[in-house]
Structures are given as C-alpha cells and as structure tokens.
Nucleic acid binder design. Structure first.
Lengths: 365, 365
DNA sequence: TACTTCATTTGGATCGTTCAAGAGGGGCGA
DNA sequence: TCGCCCCTCTTGAACGATCCAAATGAAGTA
C-alpha cells in the first residue's frame, strides 16, 4: 500500500508550502498561474484527495446532506422516494456533496435526530420530504439557522398564499414542489380534448394540502371549460379498495361520468377495477375501457398495466433541491446569498421552485 | 446559542482529564466506577456528543457505511431497495453507524466511486446489493481489504456450492441473501396442499442466479411430491406483457395447469391477466380466479390487488448485513474476529446468512 | 534612495479527539 | 523497607486540513 498522501506530500513535490496547495484547491485565484499548474500536476500525479474529516474539523462544514428515509410507503405509491433519492444523490455528487440517510419513527424523534446529526456529524443541511400541517421540524430548523429545503410546499403557512403575512407567521424557507393541480389539469384537459364531457374525480378527503391541490386542478379545468363539476367528485382515503368503492359510487349516479381522474395510482387502480373493462383487465391495445381512467405518480404499476398517469419530474426536483441548498450553503459561507438565482420558467420566486409534471398517456384513457 | 461542548468541557466539569472522558466513552472498564458515573453525569448534563470528524481524523474510522442507490428499478419490483435501505439505516443507527449513498452508472464507475469515497471520507464499509456474475467490485474490494457485505449470494463462485473449491476461486466474503428456492417451494407446496396437481411456473430465462434458484424451488417441490414438471415451465424476461404471454402459452397447452407460480410480481400480474378472472379483476373476496397465481416480492401492487406472493424479510436482511459488518469492523479493530458468531437456524456458515422468506396468502390463490 | 502598494507565498496555531507514555498511590511478596 | 505490579488517571503529541498574521519580492511613486 502506498504511503498516505496528504497536503504536505503534495506541497513537497510541488515545492511550495501547504497553504499554497490549500489555496489552489479553495481559492485558486490567489495563486499565480504557473504555481497553480505545478500544484495541480503534483495533485494528480500523487492521486491526492483532501481528507474530509480534517477539512470538516477545521471549517465546521461536512459537505454532507441528510435525508430521512421513511418507514414504508403506503400502497402502490412506493418507489417515488426511491427515485427522488437517486436524483438527489446524483445531483449532490455533482455539486460536491454526499447524502446521508436517517430514520425517525415520528416527528419528535426526527428532531432528536437532527440534534444528534448536527452534533456528531456537523451536517450541512437537511432535505425534508413531505411537509405537514404545522410542521414542527421546519420551525426547529429555522430557529437554529440550519439550512434545509423541503420537497413539498409549506401548506400550513398562510403567508405563502397571501404575501402580506402576519408577523407570527414562520419564516419562509426554500422549497421545491411539483404542481399537482397542473398535472391533474393536464389529464383533465386531455380528456376534454378527446371528447369527454362528464369527467369525474376521485381524490383524498379535503384537508390535505397535496390532495386539495390536485382536486383543484380538475375542478378549475372543468369550470374553465364551462362545465359543472357538481356531483362528479368523490373523496376516499388512498387505497385500491377505496378507489374502487368511490368509482363505483360515481358510476352509479344518475348521470355517470365517461372518464375518471384520480389523485393517485392506487385510487386509479381501484377505479379501473370498478370500470370493469370488457374482457378483464384493460391492458392489451384496443382493449380501451369504456370509461377512461387516469392516475397520478406514474408508478411502475401504471407503466405495467397501461394506466395513463401524471409523472412527477423527480430527478429534476431533486436537482433543484440541491441547487437551492448549494445557494444557501455557499451564500452563508462566502457572505451574502447574492449568487445567481434560478430563473426557470417554472420557478416562482427566490428559493422556491414549482415544477410542472407531465402526462404519460397510455391505453387506459 | 450555547458554547460548543467538547471533551474538554466535560472534563472540566467532571474534574478529570480529557483522556479519562475519552476512556469512559471508549473503554469504560479502565475507569473507576465512581469517576465513570461523575463523567457520565457531566456528559448528559452538558449534552455532549463526540465530534465524529475529530474522532475520525485520529482513528481513521468514520462509522460510515456506503450503499449504492440504483438508477431506476425495473417494472413493478421497485420499492424493494427502498425497504432494504430503510432497514439498513435503522440497523446501522442502532449499531452506531450511518448510511451514506452513492451512485454509479456502471461497474467501472462504481469502482472509481469506491476509491473516491475511501480517499475522501474514509468509509468503513460497503454494502453491495445485487451480485453479478464475475463481479469486479467484490474482487477490487477484497484485494484492498475493504470490509463489505453483499445482499445476494456470489453466484459466480463454484466454491460456494462445492466447498472444496479450487485455488483460483476468489476469497469468500460475507453475504446475506434470501432463499428464493424456499420461497417458491412454500408457494408450490401450499398449492399442492389446496389440491392442485398441475402447477406451472413462469420464470426468467435460465442463466440468472436468482432466477434459476427460484425455478429450482418449484421444480424440486413437484418432484418431491411425485409429480412431473415436464412441460409446465415457461421462461420470459421480467415484465407484465411477458408474463401474460408466457401464462397464455401455458394455458393453451394440452394439459393446462390449474395454478401458476411466478418468479416475480410483474410476471404474476401478467399471468393474472392471462388467467382472466371472472368478472374482471380478481380482487373482491370470493372472486377467486379459477387458475391460482402467486408472485414473488410482495410488492405494494400485490398487496393492493390481493395477489398471493412471497415476502422477503428485507428489514431482517438489512439487519444481518449490519451485524456482519459490525463483526468485521470490530474484529479488525480489536484484533481477531473471534466475537460471537451468528447461530441463527437460518444461518449457513460464518459470515454468510441465508434467510427464509414467507408466503403471504391472498385471494389470488 | 526610501517608501508604499500589491500580489503571492509562508510558518505557526488551531479544530476535537485518541494514542503513547508516564505519574502517583496502594497492595503484596521478598 | 524495598521493589514491583496493577489500577487509575494525567500530560503532551499527533491526525490533516484551514485560518491568520506576517514575510517576501517586485513594481510603482515620491
């Protein structure tokens, strides 16, 4: 095994001091070009890699981002976190960060986990997935000036919708989210375009931010098209059986819909069952069911059975999370977050990104 | 913000030296009970947490375990890695380790990633998921004495099946796996017990370690029961459509099976479609299809639509991985891996654990 | 020439922990 | 009593990087 290569080894070989090597790495503009090249050469010749632990001890920054991995996903909509995690890891790697996992059975324990992670590992930032009403976690982190991004809008914050928020309102924090209303609207519009006029919706009970958002996409699209959504709306907790029951109820109404838009693939799967395509499962081409069904999340199941579904740009969302964090982290380090700001067409203000999902059309409608 | 609590702070408060505090944490037996208590009190009073970076710099050990998160799971069988990761994170946490993620588009890049992770972060160990034939990664890691565990048997190693392996055979390494043959056998036996006599199998083409293993479970169980498996076997790449085609082919044979065992939930989903349950999807209780179908992996889809499936004990597998790593790591540190050995009934030799999956019976058969 | 300015480079101190070596005190055999 | 060992605890020195203050040298200016 070769001798351990430290910054001193490199310095000796390039015939400069340790600090100059350090400067080449962290502040190249301070080093004369000729020297810089010499040092760079020595670095690659020796295969030098900065020891993160030593760097971290001195700077207090670990280049580590923590993400919670949740116990088990409910129903069909698993693997969403999976894909998000992959995107996050990739984006973080590109930005020079690493992703560390942690778990916590409940929010209380999650805050303890923050404390422990910050204390022992000097974590640079957190990514929270799934925001909740009155989220204690964001408050805790904000209070301690710990950088974080949420994947999901802060639903509980009235200031988000009404910019002139009250003083007691928690501080805004960077977030990334996917515009669920837009996704459902896309699905609904497409059904309108293909001739449907009575389009039902099966979503979650009112009161969940994500659910309400998705429902509004359907609702508003019908209104815009001059159609009356009354009576075409059903609410059910997420799940196959619940989706089936809700869809059956819709179909049994006086004027049953010719298409059903669902808030999730689980519900859509149930709805497909209720719809009862001729000849069994609506999979083969040409086996289009009489009542069109669309889902949300474009899960593997949807891909497998040919369910039209709204696909979230998870990799892009993850990349945005990393971008936002990098902005905050580099900003807080170099003083002043004046760096370049995202100017996406999808962006909606500094540090807050709303992405557009896309509709994946398959046989189900 | 409170003053930073270091080992020196604790030492002052407990009126001992830094080293004594360190000993209380790392070698309690060296400290007199009275002193130990005093130090422990100071630790919890001050909320002291050892700084991992400093510890790592001195010891060269990071208490970090790396796992690769793969690009995208194929088909329905996503979320398996998800669940495994969760179990791993939880078990690692309990053992005082943390899980770090990395990605790599191909094996070559994965080895580069090892190099980089080891160089910069001093990783303690790797967990590899999914072993391949002639795995270059395990060879690389073994060569450099980097501790690792694989989730999945090393299929390419003839010494694994024939203990008197040749000298050129790569060194054995610790692994954890789930006995796929056993799982399929359980499914097959249950079908036998419920009266089925002609039981078909839809699996992957021969040549994949996992696939061959699962097929053998079906094959051997039929033989043991005195039944002839000839003609009841179909091979297809993983996927819904492929499963459907293979199952249709089986059903069209001269003596069609009354039950079909599948190597994955994707295939099983297709088979269910081919089976064509009366009245559409075989979900409601009592809507048992005429031809029973079972899958493998107990994915969320199986749970949603009532598909009988073989469930892998992923959390337990993850915990075993951590146990094995902890053995190796603590062994290499304290000299001699003489520690306690797993004596599970499921265990099959030192450092190699084969777990038993369980059958989850649902409406599909 | 002497003084200032600027860009570049240097050496020492430091982060928080563990390792290595040693110090103090009591018990015990010679 | 001496010497030795063991138990317990303390002190100084690393680990490898960055921060800070100061030195160096060249060029510009009076």
């Amino acid at each position: 095994m070769a001798e351990k290569v430290t910054i001193a080894t490199v310095a000796r070989r390039a015939r400069v001091s340790r600090q100059t090597v350090s400067n080449v790495l962290n502040a190249p503009h301070m080093v004369r070009e000729e020297t810089r090249e010499r040092v760079r050469e020595a670095i690659s010749a020796l295969g030098y890699r900065a020891n993160q632990a030593a760097r971290q001890m001195r700077t207090g920054r670990s280049r580590l981002i923590a993400v919670r991995i949740e116990p088990t996903r409910d129903g069909v909509n698993g693997s969403v976190l999976d894909r998000f995690l992959h995107g996050l890891t990739e984006a973080a790697e590109a930005a020079g960060y690493r992703v560390m996992l942690y778990t916590a059975p409940d929010p209380r324990a999650e805050i303890d986990a923050y404390d422990s992670l910050l204390g022992a590992y000097d974590l640079d930032a957190f990514v929270l997935t799934g925001t909740e009403y009155g989220d204690a976690r964001t408050a805790w982190l904000t209070e301690r000036d710990v950088p974080f991004v949420t994947f999901g809008r802060p639903w509980d914050n009235p200031a988000e919708t009404a910019p002139q928020g009250r003083t007691a309102v928690p501080a805004r924090h960077p977030w990334v989210d996917v515009n669920g209303a837009d996704g459902v609207a896309q699905a609904t519009r497409r059904l309108l375009d293909t001739g449907h006029r009575r389009i039902g919706f099966v979503g979650w009970p009112a009161g969940s931010g994500v659910g309400d958002d998705r429902r509004s996409g359907w609702h508003d699209t019908l209104l815009t098209a001059g159609l009356d959504p009354t009576g075409l709306d059903r609410a059910a907790p997420d799940g196959f059986a619940q989706g089936e029951a809700a869809a059956r109820d819709l179909l049994a109404s006086a004027e049953p819909p010719t298409a059903i838009v669902c808030a999730s693939d689980s519900l859509a799967l149930g709805a497909l069952q209720a719809v009862g395509a001729p000849g069994g499962w609506p999979a083969g081409p040409g086996q289009r069911p009489e009542v069109a069904v669309t889902g949300f999340d474009d899960t593997p199941v949807a891909q497998a059975i040919g369910l039209t579904s709204v696909s979230q740009p998870l990799a892009q969302a993850a990349a945005c999370c990393v971008d936002l964090l990098a902005d905050v982290l580099d900003g807080s380090r170099r003083g002043g977050a004046a760096g370049h700001r995202r100017s996406d067409p999808a962006s909606s203000g500094p540090g807050q990104v709303l992405l557009r999902p896309s509709l994946v059309v398959r046989q189900s409608g």
